[in-house]
Design a protein around this nucleic acid. Structure first.
Ligand code: FES
Ligand code: FES
Lengths: 156, 156
DNA sequence: CCATACTGGACTAAGATAGTCCCATATAGA
DNA sequence: TCTATATGGGACTATCTTAGTCCAGTATGG
């Protein structure tokens, strides 16, 4: 349940790799070697990531990829948006395929609130956290209303 | 991202229906009519639910389905467990197909913590809440450590 | 008995996912 | 200029999952 795809997991590994070895360009081959992922998969994911504003690319010989922003300003929600698309927790609540049952369905609204809560939570977890997981993740409000951090245990 | 399947959504609608009209048996046809879902789908889902400890069934003429427990003691996590299986947020962290990369992968642990946090959150939301969504869902701790409610705005 | 209703599972069509491969384009350096 | 090294864009396929339907079996009340 609530599964993220393998590709998203791989993509996150790649981002973590870029975060840990910052300051220089990395070719797809480098990243594949560093993460032990298959090269074609890494190429595909880096292309995807480069199209977003998370990763920048330089073409040509001696080219490669870098993080476009600091690991502290890339959230798990950002990553999921890029790699899984702007999907919602329920099929019903996507923009185009709105559920024909939605009127009579009391549940849709609740799922959407839960979804917003989870997204809010993921928005507070940064790539830096993922690269060096803190013992505690921040407290998060599922209401989607006040949606604020209550407490954060210092990283490291 | 983090999508639950249509069937899970439907199943939840069915459970809500049973929760709202408690105290008597409901045949699959009744539920289909009440929820406006297709009969075969409802039959399939009720069979599934009856195999769990969320719904009880009575066979034969005048038979049907009832909630096995009060709506207040059925959580969203319970529902997802039954309808989506005991899956994890990452493919890697399932019991059988453990990721061969896990050793070198710093991300796996973090996803699993996030997963536990989300599950904890869903464990605090009951079927009663879904049937009559409160304006605010409870505060939840994503750490998976202390995993406790901090504050709960009264339902209704 | 028989109509009603659950039980178990088979089955299919459609869609999503994972993974590979190819060709075009850009650039640094010999 | 030529060439090796990169990324960019996308096609393509095999496999798995999902959604939905259907049927033969079993229990039970009247
Ligand atoms: S089934 Fe579509 S909103 Fe619930
Ligand atoms: S890729 Fe399997 S644990 Fe991260």
């Amino acid at each position: 349940m609530l599964r993220i795809s393998k590709l998203t997991d791989y993509g996150t590994m790649i981002l973590v790799h870029l975060a840990v070895h910052q300051g220089r360009l990395h070719s797809a081959s480098d990243v594949a070697a560093g993460t032990r992922l298959a090269l074609p998969t890494v190429q595909k994911l880096l292309k995807l990531l480069a199209r977003s504003d998370l990763v920048r690319s330089v073409r040509g010989a001696e080219g490669g990829y870098v993080l476009a922003r600091g690991p502290g300003s890339i959230s798990a929600a950002d990553i999921l948006d890029v790699l899984e698309g702007p999907l919602s927790i329920t099929e019903c609540s996507t923009s185009d395929s709105r559920c024909e049952l939605e009127d009579g369905c009391p549940v849709g609204g609740a799922w959407q609130k839960i979804n917003r809560g989870i997204r809010g939570a993921l928005g507070e977890i940064t790539l830096a956290d993922l690269a060096h997981p803190p013992r505690e993740f921040p407290l998060v409000d599922l209401s989607g209303r006040t949606g604020r951090i209550r407490q954060r245990i210092p990283t490291s």
